[in-house]
Computed example of a mutant assay.
Amino acid sequence: MGGEHTGRFDGRIALVTGAGSGIGAAVARRLAAQGAEVFAADVDGPAAQSVARELRGAQPLTVDVTDPRQVDTAFGEIVRRHGRLDVLVHAAGVDDPTAKEWIAEALVADRPPEVTGRLGDDAWRHVMRVNLDGTFHVLRAALRVMAPRRSGVVVTVGSSSAFDAQAGYPHYAASKSGAHALSQSVAKEAIAFGVRVNTVAPGPTETGMAARTPAALRRGFADPRVRPYATPEEIADVALFLASEEAANLVGAVLLANGGRFTA
């Protein structure tokens, strides 16, 4: 696949959340390179602006997906400008660096991680608000725009963590598992209105989240029998496949992109 211009998304209006970095930024670049007019949304406004400046005709949006009003305003702005939204890739998400540190400390000490008993309400709610509530806010706004036109494609970025449910990472695993089920339920509803919804579930990927992962934990993810960490561009290519007409018969799919670490 790759980032060269293919015309695959010529004339399409596309919104990418989490576009300021990592997988979202790679998706925004790929979509623009393949002809889409991209709205690059991120809670970090300057990061969204930086990515948008790279891309032909791209527009930055500052959006906190935990705030439904901000989400609805962003979708409304796109519809006001273009009358429609053709492609949505929802890549906004967060991890928990503190919990990762606790897991890494346990690995180094060769003892089981003890996280759940130490996990505060604020940490739990933050991860759930962004990863699960945010996915609901974005999917709801997308259907409000796309379903009346009987057209549109949505790709959500989940995680392989929803399946292997790593010890010591309960809030992240639960948030991503919930986001998968949410996307699949919405997919079954949305297809009746001509809207396709699918999910890509990456494994370890070289993003800002990975950069914050402690060295001991990164070594734990390393395995010579499987592919190394994915690049954001490799995951973006899977997302663009799901967003393209080549995936016309995929509805409610969750595609594991974890380099062969496990299957589900």
Rank of each mutant, 00 (worst) to 15 (best):
Y172I: 05
F9R: 04
P224L: 08
A210M: 14
E77R: 13
F221V: 11
E101P: 00
G57Q: 06
L85Y: 02
N249Q: 13
R149L: 15
L250R: 10
P112S: 14
R30P: 00
L61D: 03
V197E: 07
H137M: 08
M146T: 01
G93R: 00
V138D: 08
V197N: 06
P148D: 05
R125Y: 14
P214I: 00
P224A: 11
V153H: 10
A165Y: 05
R53V: 12
D96G: 02
D64H: 05
S159P: 08
G22V: 05
L88Q: 05
P97H: 04
R149W: 00
L61S: 04
G120Y: 08
Y229R: 07
E77G: 14
E233G: 15
V238Q: 08
T116G: 11
A41K: 06
V153S: 11
F39T: 04
Q59C: 12
R30G: 15
G24R: 01
L139N: 09
D67V: 12
T135F: 00
G7S: 02
A248G: 14
Q34H: 10
G11P: 09
A47H: 02
A201T: 01
V38T: 01
L242A: 08
A19K: 03
G18F: 05
E234C: 07
E206G: 12
G2C: 09
A25Y: 05
D121H: 12
G35C: 07
V79I: 14
A99L: 12
S244L: 10
E245S: 14
P112R: 04
L182Y: 07
V155Y: 02
L107P: 01
L242Y: 03
A239T: 05
A91W: 01
G178Y: 06
V226T: 14
P148S: 07
A264F: 15
P214F: 04
V43W: 03
V157T: 12
L139V: 07
A109C: 07
L250Y: 11
V200P: 02
V27L: 03
V186Y: 01
G20T: 06
T73F: 03
R84M: 07
N258M: 10
F193C: 12
T66Q: 12
A33M: 08
G83N: 06
P204T: 09
V153K: 11
A74V: 10
G208C: 02
H137N: 15
E189H: 14
V251A: 09
G57S: 10
A236P: 06
P232W: 05
A92K: 02
S160K: 04
R30D: 13
H90M: 10
A243V: 08
R219S: 14
R225S: 15
D64F: 09
A52H: 03
R196M: 08
R219E: 15
G93F: 07
I78T: 01
V89E: 05
R129N: 15
S185I: 13
A19D: 08
E233L: 07
V108G: 07
T73Y: 00
L15M: 11
A41N: 09
G194K: 03
L255S: 03
A123G: 09
R111M: 11
K100Y: 10
G83A: 09
Y229A: 15
A167R: 13
L256C: 07
A247I: 11
